[in-house]
Amino acid sequence: MTTLFGIFLLTLLMITGMAIVHTRNLFVAVMLMGIASLLIAASFFLLDAADVALTEAAIGAGISTVLFLGALALTSERERKRRRSLSTSSLLQFGIVGVVALIVIWATFDQPRLGSPSAPVQAHLTPWYIESTRDLIDIPNAVTAVLASFRGYDTLGEVVVVFTAGVGVLFLLGTGASSRAAGAPLSEDNAGLRHYLIPRILGRLLIPFILLLGFYVQFHGEYGPGGGFQAGAIIAASVILYALLEGEQRALSVIPQGVLLAMMAGGTLLFGAVGVAGIVLGSNFLDYSVLSEDPVNGQHWGILLIEMGIGITVAGVLISIFHAFAARATA
């Protein structure tokens, strides 16, 4: 039954994907992207990846849609019409794409079937990770254990990539601080949805709950699905929602640009500092066992701290990126 449902979802996903590429209206394409993200998140959940489903739903369907819409507002909503002619180059493109797709499908026949217990993925590292999570770290969520402790280097790298991307966007678009005078009255454009009473009031009602969910996901990540990446995205989503409802200025007065920059850098630094603390206390980089008398307890402390670092960085970067786009739209 679950298999059947998964196949149904994936078929819908394929149709959505083709519709995204086919449509000339970019607005429609972005909306369809949101639908595709939700479909893929549901598929992830069916494939036992609760953490990933949570991340994809928060980021793919939520924040990415907002960013694309912001970019569309500044460029154009439609692709330019081109002459409909089957030139050799378009035939070549179709040909290459088709042939590569067939090759990939042909190659899948050598793949282990879905859920096969003898697949190479299940054979070597997976049992070790699951056993060691029980013995060395003693938290229920193996995903958090692998993410924060066993593969801490990887995660540090990813956090730095997120931080760098955020800095890159700010370099390209500016922080928007210089373009507007402090305390200037709200113009029509950046007043958000102030005219729309019902979405505004209900949105304000929901924002505390979204924030609460964000913090729950952050601090409950060791026991259930969750962790810094998801929590950062959810908290960023609540701030972005506030900015959309109340106007960007208000959101900036709640969390000023300086605080956002400090969050971006501070979270990454916190992660690195925990790693260095391991060296100082006489062990290896990112080895949390020495952070406390009891090695297991030390692991708990380390995971808690670096998850906080991740959450702070991700939230800071996503909110800053949104503000950079929004400042352009209203400038």
């Binding site: 980021i59 990770y129 995903v143 993410l147 990813e158 962790g227």
Partner: peptide, 20 residues
């Protein structure tokens, strides 16, 4: 297996940053 999930979890956040 938790390992592919960890890799993709981080990759999703990186993908939104690079898209931005």
């Amino acid at each position: 297996s938790p390992l592919p999930q960890v890799l993709i979890l981080t990759a999703i956040v990186v993908s939104i940053s690079t898209t931005a």
